[in-house]
Amino acid sequence: MSRALIHVPPRARAGEIIEIRTLVQHPMETGFRPLPEGGFVPRLILRRFECIYDGAVVFAAELHPAVAANPYIAFRLRATRSGGILFRWIDDQGAVREERAGIEVI
């Protein structure tokens, strides 16, 4: 797993609903692609995405083999307090990728 692009508004009013957009680089290999010499390309997909903010998981998603490469996930959350927002992707092999972004709530 490698690069990620994350968009979080730098500041928001308390109680405001903000949009978060994430794009992560991942092949999302389905496991259904045949190899020329027989057999299949082993499956390697992101299984779970989580967003942790203000001490709680505020958004989570289960991903499946039909999700395209480089999953783009956009969602909204309510800005409550200034601080970090943690993004976490977990793949088939249990590898975890984490990204952080900050928000200032005024």
Partner: peptide
């Protein structure tokens, strides 16, 4: 949208 264009990940790479 550079935040949605997957090609931008390759640019970063």
């Amino acid at each position: 949208d550079d935040m949605a264009n997957p090609g931008m990940l390759t640019v970063l790479e």
